[in-house]
Design a protein around this nucleic acid. Sequence first.
DNA 1: CTGATTGCAAACGGTTTGCAGGCTT
DNA 2: AAGCCTGCAAACCGTTTGCAATCAG
Lengths: 159, 159
Amino acid sequence: MPTSSAHFRRLCTERGIAVTHQRQVLYETMREMKGHPSPEEVHERMRTTIPSVSLATVYKNIHLFVASGVFRQMSVHHGTLRVEMNREEHHHMVCSICRSITDVEASEIDVRLPENRLPGGFRVERCSVDIIGVCAACQAAGKNTMPAQTTVTELRPSH
Amino acid sequence: MPTSSAHFRRLCTERGIAVTHQRQVLYETMREMKGHPSPEEVHERMRTTIPSVSLATVYKNIHLFVASGVFRQMSVHHGTLRVEMNREEHHHMVCSICRSITDVEASEIDVRLPENRLPGGFRVERCSVDIIGVCAACQAAGKNTMPAQTTVTELRPSH
DNA sequence: CTGATTGCAAACGGTTTGCAGGCTT
DNA sequence: AAGCCTGCAAACCGTTTGCAATCAG
């Protein structure tokens, strides 16, 4: 009797999508990966199990998983396809130098939205906080990385 | 005596960058535009003033402006190059259907970070909140746009 | 006059698409 | 058996780069 296989099979039938070997391996590969792996990284990892799998299939199925609610896409306006592997509510620390993203537990940050009175009848689904700054590694690596962006003194034209 | 021209000239000399016609027009075009225009859109608009300007120049100079602190790039982990035209502190409402982004005054939202105790010695510069949901237009337009993403009932596999 | 800046066109990286063959139901 | 799914290769889109001609300091 399959264990995780059974779980995945149920996941698919609930959503009316076919159970294929690639999908199952993709699903399990992604669940094993921490952080916010790129499709490329997921693909690379999947190849250890199915060497012949194509990147196109990875893309198609990540989209399928996101569309059917198996995974959640991170920051909707993000340009590249990244998926949340962390199922807990959380926010992000984003390093402005190396762009690495680290999760922060939702409980660490206190956000209060105005009582459903956002402008323009916007219906709120959720809310995600990006803490922008410099990660420890980049601080240690010294100042010479991307100097202009970070050493600017006058952020606003004085006009 | 030039008015905004003088202002721009000063902006450049302060930062040690050359004053060119393209840069001046780019700067003014961007300041006139609301929201978070794409380089493509900025380019299109610039052409009404300098029809021969190239998209490459637009890219190069948006980067230059961001690097020298004239403008601020929005959400660092954003994939595509977008710049903040709004100089006030603010956050964003992002429509998960049409991906439109609307600004919300910072004062409307109350965010509290833990007292400089973020994990891993991260140095905080600023913090930006994305309120994710559905804009009024998309609500009015009805449910049939991108059905799967929004009508999903079971967000987490039940296991 | 010298080096920075521009416009062009080609390269690039990530993502999407069309299609023929194979697999799931 | 019917249709969805896969892998491949080509197309695509936004962005970057190399280069020769031009411009700012």
